[in-house]
């Protein structure tokens, strides 16, 4: 049914466009996520100094910064709907799949903008090796897809709970842990200058993780949204 899927894509895009427009008006989530990223980066760089960090350190620090920045802003997409009491209106105008995909794209954009700004700063502040930049970007893209794919559903869950802020990281962390382990492992190898073949296992994992988490989220999202 090409007609129905075209409708889904259009509706998902409409949700995405609505969220982007709202975000550009207030820039609340974007500011939070960006400032959090920059602040953590500054603390790390200031306290550890610029030179002589081993690849393992660099990889771990980078993904800790990414994780906590993601935690600071990615729940906004759903919390905002609850706070503005627009959930019902959204329920009436679009089906759950379209809403989930729209919100996923929105979170991906947020994290993408933050990554584009913070990653170069990370390389400048920590003097990380830039020799394998393309491989690093590949890991980075798969990483933020995985991060968004796993946290968007959790964001939807916590928007319905009474204590939102703290629960988001508590619920997200166990789900993200396998992702973070292999992201750190892959980034460490990239910083070490190992060839692409050495990170093949991690790349497969990252891809599988992103696909499975997004599929599971789409299947489960309607149960959260109906509440």
């Amino acid at each position: 049914m090409p007609n129905k899927s075209a409708g889904l894509a259009a509706k998902a895009f409409a949700v995405y466009a609505k969220d982007m427009r709202l975000e550009l008006r207030s820039r609340y989530a974007l500011n939070a996520i960006l400032m959090f990223g920059i602040t953590t980066l500054a603390v790390v760089s200031f306290s550890l100094g610029q030179f002589g960090l081993s690849p393992k350190f660099l990889a771990a620090l980078f993904w800790i910064i990414m994780f906590f920045s993601a935690m600071s802003g990615l729940a906004q997409a759903f919390i905002r709907e609850e706070e503005a009491q627009t959930v019902l209106a959204l329920k009436l105008t679009a089906d759950p799949d379209a809403i989930y995909i729209g919100k996923l794209l929105f979170n991906f954009t947020l994290l993408g903008i933050m990554t584009v700004i913070v990653t170069p700063l990370f390389f400048i502040f920590t003097d990380a090796p830039t020799a394998n930049l393309f491989r690093f970007i590949l890991v980075l893209i798969l990483g933020i897809i995985g991060l968004c794919g796993a946290t968007t559903l959790v964001a939807a869950i916590i928007s319905k709970a009474s204590v939102k802020g703290a629960l988001f990281s508590v619920l997200s962390f166990p789900v993200l842990m396998p992702l973070l382990i292999s992201l750190v492992s892959a980034s460490e190898k990239v910083f070490d200058g190992l060839p692409l073949g050495n990170i093949a296992a991690e790349l497969q994992f990252l891809l599988a993780y992103a696909v499975i988490m997004v599929t599971a989220s789409i299947m489960l999202f309607k149960f959260v949204w109906q509440e």
């Binding site: 559903l153 959790v154 869950i157 319905k160 709970a161 619920l171 166990p174 789900v175 842990m177 396998p178 993780y209 499975i212 988490m213 599971a216 989220s217 489960l220 149960f223 959260v224 109906q226 509440e227």
Partner: peptide, 14 residues
Amino acid sequence: ASLSAVYSIFAFVT
């Protein structure tokens, strides 16, 4: 019940 059911299924996937 539904929120925790969704979370436990989602987490079990990992």
